[in-house]
Amino acid sequence: MAQKAGGKARIAKQFIEAIPFSKALRMCLEDIGDGRAVISMPWSEDLVGDPQSGVIHGGAVSALMDTCGGAAVMSHPDAPAGTATIDLRIDYMRPATPGQRIVARAECYNVTRSVGFVRASAHDADDARPVATAAGAFTVERPKEVKA
């Protein structure tokens, strides 16, 4: 998907997948553009938070949502030069099914001069019932103004 979308998306994919922590969690940028991003993360033994059930730790899902939210902000048409998370709230609807890849979709639905507002959701193979939803605010770092 992202490869087809052209140069900008390819650069974004390389950029996000090169982030050390995203790499450690084996995140994969599936799609990006116009303030939206889709990032997936495979199940892994390392990420298990409940040894008795094999369910992935909430922290790993937060990390996925955070990365996806940041990517959505960066891809907004009012393109900020960079972004950082101000706050992020995650609601956990149900445990993710062990063994299944988790896919996060984030949308930056509003950008002001200095803040990007994001909502996101995460699913496993059951697309009808979200594993988690999230809402967050991100900084919008503007490139240095070019004087007219």
Partner: peptide, 26 residues
């Protein structure tokens, strides 16, 4: 090094920080 989210600053990844806090809480 794997906890980094912004290699240019460098800074810890927001997700790593969230994970740390959630692990601590649980």
């Amino acid at each position: 090094e794997k906890l980094i989210g912004n290699p240019f600053l460098p800074a810890l990844h927001g997700g790593a920080i969230a994970s740390f806090l959630e692990v601590t809480a649980i």
